[in-house]
Nucleic acid binder design. Sequence first.
DNA 1: TAATTCGCTAGACCGA
DNA 2: TCGGTCTAGCGAA
Length: 812
Amino acid sequence: MVSTRAFLLDIGYAHGSGVATSSLSGLRGKTFRLVLKRESDGKVFRLFDDSFEPYFYLLPREGVTQEQILKVTGFYRGTNVAVARVEEVERKLKGEIVKLFKVYAKHPGHVPVLASELKQYGERFEHQVHFVLRYLLDKKLQPLGLVEVKHSGKMVMGISAVADSPLPSLRVLAFDIETYNPGVKSDPRKDPCLMISYATNEKSGVISYGKKFSHDFVEVVASEKAMLERFCEIVRENHVDVIATYNGDEFDLPFLRERAKVLNADFRLGRDRALPRTRKKGIRNASSLGGRIHFDAYPVVAFLNFIGAFKLQRLTLQDAVTAITGKPKADIVKMDIHKIWDSGLTKDLDYLAFYNRDDSIACLAVTNYSLPLQIEMARLTGNLVFDTSRASAMPLVEPFIMKKALERGELIPSKPAYSENDKLPPVEGAFVKIPNPGVYENIAVLDFKSLYPSIIISYNVGPDSYNCDCCKSDGFVSPQGHRFCKKKKSIIAETLSDILDSRFAIQKKMKTLTDKESDEYKQLYARQWSLKILANSVYGLTLNPRFRWYTREGGESTTAWARQYIQEVNKKAEETGFEVIYNDTDSIMLLYKTENSVLEFRDAVNKTLPERMELELEDFYTRGLFVAKKGEAGKDGKGARKKYALINKEGKIKIRGFELVRRDWSKVAREVQRSVLEILLKEGNVDKAVALVRKTVAELQSGKVPLDDLVILTQLRKSPKDYAIMSPEVSAYTKAINAGIRVPEAVVMYVVTSKGKSISEKAFVREMAQDYDADYYINHQLMPAVLKILAELGVTEDDLLTNSKQHTLGSW
DNA sequence: TAATTCGCTAGACCGA
DNA sequence: TCGGTCTAGCGAA
C-alpha cells in the first residue's frame, strides 16, 4: 500500500472506459473514479474507490423493525434489487435526538427505488443527496483540495483531506471554433468545422486545413479530420487540466463530437481518452470531458451578471471581456464565414483566423478572471467546479449548509415538493422612502453592513428556531409576532455567522499582504467574494418554497426587522437635527453640516445595535439630484424612488436607476442624459446642458445620427407566440424571422424607423432598418431622458426644442 | 431548474 | 381621440 499527497481534480462514476480491469467490471456505477494531481511532481493519475456504500435514512413508523426493512425489494432497470443492510443510528431532528435506520443499497441507482418502496414504513431523509456530493461530504473532501490518499494498486484504501490546502497550479487552455454556415445555423452533420483556435497563458494559435494563410500562428494540416486530431494532440501535449470555452456546453463540444463521428476522427479529448459527453442539466446542456474540467465561462458570466458583479448589455464574449479587462477583443465585423472560406482569399482568411484566435484569447481572459472564484466556491461548498460553474444560488448554498448539518449531527431536510407554499402572496419587503425631487448639497450616505444576514444572525432566524418549545415566553419576537429560539442557534444563523466571520478574517489577512498580484492575495480575494455571494443569497432562498431550509416566517421577519431598524435610524437622525432625504432597504441619505456630526451619529447608532449589526458610512457627497416621478411634475410633486445621481468630493459620480443605466434605451438618449447629469453635478451649468440637448435635437432632425446609436435592446423572455401584446421588440423580431434574417440571441436589437404607424410597426431589427424616425427619438427617447432632470432647474420642453433666445436660468 | 421584493416606465390595448 | 388599465422589461437593494 502506498500513501500519496495529491490534489483532487475530479471525481465521477467509473464508466466503461474508465474501468479497464475485469475485477472492477461488476462494480460499475458504484465505483468512483478519482483524478488526482500529485503534489510532488504534478503528475496526474487515476484511482478507483469502491468502498463507499450508498445509503439513506428512515425514521421508522411505530413498530417497524429492521427485519421488515431488510425484506424490502424494488425494480431497477428491469431487475429486482434489495436492501443491502440496515443499521440503527442516532441523529438530531429539529434539535431532538431521534433513532433512525440507516438503509444501505448496493448501487446508487437503487437508492431512489428503495426509498420509494420504503415510503410506507416511515419518513425518509437524505435519499435525494447526489452520490458524488455524498462521498465528498462524508469524507470531508474539497474538490481541488489536497488529499492524503492510501492506495493499493489502483484501488483507494483510505482518503482524507489535508487541512489549509493550497491551490494546485492548473494548466488552462481556452479554445473556440469557426464553422461553415450557409444556413441559418451550422449543422454538424453536413457543415464542416473550418478552424480551431486555442490559447494558454503561454501561447495561442489556430489550426486549419486546405487553405493558405500568411499568419505564423496558423498551423495548416491536411484535412478537417487531421485538424480535430491535431487539436487533441495539443491538449495532451500541454497536459491541460482545464479546457475553457464560451458556450462550449451547447455549441463547440457537441459540434466537434458530431463532426468527429461523421469524419471518423479520433476526438477523445478527455484524460482517460473519453469522448466529450453532453447531457441535459436543467434548462441547458452541459458537456464534460473525462478527467479534464470543462469550464464553460458563459454560465459563469450569466450568473455573475445576475448577481450584479457586473452589468452587461448582452451576455456575449465581447461584452464580457470588455467588462472584465477594460478592452474589447477584435471587432466583430458581420461576415459570412462560409463565403470567406469559399472565396479562399488569404487576406480574408487571415482576418478570420485572427478573429478566431482573439476569441480564444478573450475566453482565456474571462476564465482567468472567473475560474479562481469558481474554484474557491467549489472548495467552500463541496461541489465540483464543473457543477459550481453551472449552478445558481440554491445548489451553491444548499451543500454549504449540508456540511454544517453533518457537523452538527443533524439530518438534512428533504427538498420540499410543490405545495400550497408556492401560491402564497409575496411577503412584504423593504422600505423605500419617497424623496422630494430637487438638487441637494452635502449629503451623507450611511448603510447597514450586510443587513439581512446580520438580522438573521442577531435574531436567530431559521426554520429550526421558529416557534421552539424552549423559549415560549422569552424568544426573539419579530415585529409581526413570529418567535425564534434564544437558546439553540439555527443552522442558517450559524452558517451565516461562520461566513461573515471567515470573510472578515480573510479581509483582515488581505490587508497584511502587500503584493496585490500575488497568488495568495488573489486566492483570498476569490474566497471572500464566494463567501459574500453565499451570504447574500441566503435571505432570498429562505423565501423560496423549494429550498431545504425554506422559512416564510423567517423571511418575513427578516424584512420586518429591517424596516423597523431603518425607520428607527431615520427617527434618531431627525431628532439629532439631520434631514433624511431618502432610504432604500438598508441605506440612509441625510443632509449634514459637518462631517464629524455624521460620524458621531453613526457611532451613537452603533452603540444601540445588536453586536452583529453595524451602520457604516458609505461616503460624503457634495451634490445630489433627485427627479420627480412621471406625472408628478411641479410644486409638491413626489420624487421617483430608485433613481438618483450623486457626486462626491473627488468628483466621482454615482448614478442609479436613470435611463442611462438601462439597456432598453437608445445610446443617444443615454449618452446625452449622462452628459447632462455630469455637467449639472460637476459644473452646475444649466445653459451648457441645454445647449447640448439642443445640439442633439438638431442632429437627430438632420437624419445623420448613426443607426447604431439608436438601437434599443430588449430581451424576449418567452416564446414570441406567447406574448399578449405586440410590443416593438416582438414585432421587430417577428418581422426579422419572416424575412429570413438570423437573429442570434434572445436580446432583440431594434431601431424605430419611419415605416409604419404605431411604434411596433416602425420597429425593425438593426439589420433591416434603413432610416430612423427622428420624431420618435426626440420625443420618446431624448426628451423624457433629459427633461425630468432639467425640469428640476426650471427648464421647459420649449426651452429645449425652440431656438428662441435662452432663458436666464438661475444658477445654483 | 429557478434567491427575494420594490419600483419606474414604455407602449399596447380597450372602452367611452 | 383620450385616458385608464394591463403587459412587460429592467433596475435597486
